[in-house]
Each structure stands twice: as structure tokens, then as C-alpha cells.
Design a protein around this nucleic acid. Structure first.
Lengths: 234, 234
DNA sequence: CGCGCTCTTGATCAGGTTCAACATTAGTGG
DNA sequence: CCACTAATGTTGAACCTGATCAAGAGCGCG
């Protein structure tokens, strides 16, 4: 982590307790155990656009998002940027450099005012030995991420841009969203990067989907899904 | 796992010990511990083309390749197949269904006569609690896989087919291969699927690379790398 | 030996990128 | 709070990479 970005460094004070109890990899523990974990994590804040780490950095901490959101992106050999995922509160990153004692391969950037907790390799290893249930939670999270990432790679190589955009919108909708309205959680530029295309194409394809009466654009970032079935059926 | 595919089922007999001791997630343990693990795994064999599991199957085992190789592939929503990776001895699969208690999202198929060891969720959880170092090994392996998979997704979305093919060849070469000759570990058809293109395009691009004097085709599956630097520089 | 594959090569076609111009939005400072 | 600037977003036109279709060659396997 770049030192100039460490705006605030403080032990997790009681007022921050809510944060750790929200974290999926810890939230099965009881209050006493939670308190123990609080002692071992450090809390930091980042302003919009600041990097938590960059590719090539060494690191011995796991970073857990507390509030705000992080943009995880990669640069390809030829220098093009690809948005890999967006981390919301409760999600973590940095596991590659941590567990393999290597460098980061991606970049983590604050998308807004964001606070994170970090736990060092030593502390985490102690916790994993003391509470093996935590490793199961991390194993769960990582195998889900492998799945998501392979799914994304498969989509890139087998489906059209239109299909990828459509299924992204349906994913955003989730289960049981009565309003059928989704709010894009990122700029169109980032969305384009995420689904592996250009902003121009996103713009055109959204218009096409609207012309086909599959969606309706409410505002620049809000879209109403009119025909979920046919969106997936493209 | 499909029952009809369980050709051979036997506890790991001493003659199979070599197999488990080769497995990266266990090979840091001593002989006594290794013996304990042997008791908990089951060994199976599969003939070429047989499926170890398919998408949609539930499962409570982790599958570790012993001998031979497995083809892990996915089907996209539109039914197209994509080769996700090839497992060689020591590698494992099935972690998604195992740790998340959900179904498999991909298919595992024997590429040749292949033997695997399987360990159940219950046995594995007991081992993880008893030997936390095993979870660290699995966490390492999974975070490496997340990285590889994200790297692949990034290549799909940011690099040309030619670049992907070239960097695949360089990856195959690895470090310090004096002969500069790589042997394709799969058919051109699978290679095409793996790098996200068609067999026709693979054929054409290989020819282009040869015309550019970057590679030289020795035989159908053996290729000599003539200019590693410029292959990556494309 | 011959039937299936995979593999190669050619010709055509379409989806998506790129470049350029303009519109819109968001961010900044007076 | 408005005005100005920079960045994002939209639309059009030309171009190009790579997919598709088709036909033939090579290869492995029963």
C-alpha cells in the first residue's frame, strides 16, 4: 500500500464494531471472538480515486471493504485496462499476494470515500489455526470467485457483446425485484470495460435492446427490465 | 459422480502412496499424517472420455488427479463449449460444489486413462481442523486459480486472438527450456476453445506466426519458438 | 482398409472497433 | 450558485478482425 494514501490509521474502535460483524468470513463467530478479531485489524480510509494497492506491490495483508466500494482492475500486457470486479462492503481482496507471498497482479482503487480493514498474514494465520471455521468461509468465498471468474471468461469467449450486456442487466436485477428497475453501479465506461467492450458499443447495444422493447432507459443510470426471459434468450 | 463411471473403487493401498505424497496440498505433512490421509481418500479410475462429474451434479467430494489428466470445461448459456483448464496430477477440482454445498458449474472429463482420489467434505473438514496448514495450501491454490482465471478473462477482453495464441505458446515454454520446443498438450480444437477462438483461426494464426519467423512448426503438435520476445511484443 | 475425426485453406460476411464530432453530465473554483 | 472545464456519453461512417460455411487433406483407430 502506498504510504501517502494512509489517511487514517487507527485500531477498530468500538464505534466501528458494526463493520467487522458484517463481514461474511467472520459473522458466524460470537461476540467475544469478534472482539478478539477487532484487536488484530487496522482500519484505513481512502478518498475517491486513491489506490489501495497496485500490481507489482508486495503485501502481507488481506483487505476487507467496510464502507464504500473498490474497483479491482487489471492492465493487460498491451496496457489496456479491464475492470475485473467491484467490491462492496464485506468483500475482501489481496488474497493472492497474501497466501502466495507474491506481488499483487491487479489494482484496487477507491470508487468513492471508502474505508477498509486490513489484517496481516501473521494475525490471519493465527486466527485460522484458532478458528478453522474461518478458513472454510474463505474457501467458500474463493471458490465462488473462481466460479464467477471462469463464468466471465466463458462468456467473453462464447457469447456476443449483446448477450453479455443483457445477462449483466439480468444479474443486476437479482431475485424478486418487484420494480424491475436496475441501477447501474458504475459508469458506462467501466461497464464497457467490465463486459469486455467499448463505451460506444454499450451505448449502441442499450439502444438496440430498447428498440426491441426488452428494456426501457429511465435515466442515465436506471434501466427498467421489460422482458427478462427474452433478454437471456437472445 | 455418475455411478456407471466408478470403474474401480478401493482404499488407497500402499502401492498408491506415491500419489498422495505428490499432492501439493498435502506434501508438507510427514509420513504418519500422510498415512492418516490415505485412510480417508477413495481412489477411482476413468477411461478416456468419461465424465467425473457434470454441471448440475451435487457433490460432496474434492477430486484430486493422480495420474492422467482431466479436461475442465463449461457450456455457455447458448450451449457453446469452452475449455477452462486441464488438470494434471496433483491438481484438484470440485471445490465449488464442496465448500458451497451447491452444484457443479462445469464438467470434468478424463482426457486419457486417468485415476483420481476423492475426499469427502466430512473427512476434509476434519483434516482442516486437525492440520490447519492444509487450508493454507488450498487457499494458496485457489487464490492462484482466481488470478489465472482473471488473467484469462482480461486477455479475452483486451487482446487479439494472435496475442492470446502467442502468449499461450510462451507460457507453455516456461522458464529455462533450452530446446525452445513446446509440445501442445491438447488438440488444436481444444486449444482453440481454450484461447477463445475457432480451429480455423488457430490454424491460420499459427501460419502467420511462422511466416513472421516467430515460430517453426516441427510436427503437428510440436512447435519451436524462434523469437520469444517478439511473440510477447505483438 | 475405410470410416471418423481433426486439421487446413479459401471465400464471404458480420459484429464490433476505431476515429471523429457533438451532446451531456459532473466536478471545480470563483 | 453559477460558470467553466474536463470527462463521460452518444451517434455516425469506415474499416478490420475473426466467425462461418464449404471443400479437401491428413490422421488415427477399429
Amino acid at each position: 500500500m502506498s504510504n501517502e494514501n494512509q489517511l487514517k490509521k487507527n485500531g477498530c474502535s468500538p464505534s466501528h464494531q458494526g463493520c467487522v460483524s458484517m463481514v461474511p468470513i467472520f459473522n458466524h463467530l460470537d461476540e467475544v471472538q469478534m472482539e478478539e478479531i477487532m484487536q488484530t485489524v487496522q482500519s484505513y480510509s481512502f478518498k475517491k480515486g486513491e489506490l489501495i494497492y497496485r500490481a507489482g506491490d508486495t503485501s502481507n495483508v488481506l483487505t476487507i471493504v467496510n464502507k464504500g466500494s473498490l474497483r479491482i482492475y487489471r492492465l493487460s500486457e498491451s496496457g489496456k485496462e479491464q475492470l475485473v470486479r467491484v467490491l462492496k462492503p464485506g468483500a475482501f481482496t489481496g488474497e493472492l499476494a497474501l497466501f502466495n507471498e507474491t506481488v499483487h497482479e491487479n489494482y484496487a482503487e477507491a470508487m468513492e470515500e471508502t474505508s477498509v480493514c486490513q489484517i496481516t498474514r501473521e494475525s490471519l494465520e493465527k486466527l485460522l489455526i484458532k478458528y478453522p471455521s474461518i478458513s472454510l468461509k474463505i474457501l467458500q468465498a474463493l471458490s465462488t470467485r473462481v466460479d464467477e471468474s471462469e463464468h466471465q471468461a466463458t462468456q467473453f469467449s462464447t457469447e456476443s457483446t449483446e448477450q453479455r450486456l443483457a445477462s449483466y442487466l439480468v444479474d443486476l436485477l437479482g431475485e424478486g425485484n418487484e420494480s424491475m428497475i436496475v441501477t447501474l453501479p458504475m459508469t458506462k465506461k467501466d461497464l464497457a470495460s467490465y463486459i469486455g467492450t467499448t463505451p460506444e458499443t454499450v451505448s449502441r447495444k442499450l439502444k438496440e435492446l430498447e428498440d426491441m422493447k426488452l428494456i426501457k432507459r429511465i435515466s442515465s443510470s436506471r434501466i427498467k427490465i421489460l422482458d427478462e426471459d427474452n433478454l437471456l434468450f437472445l
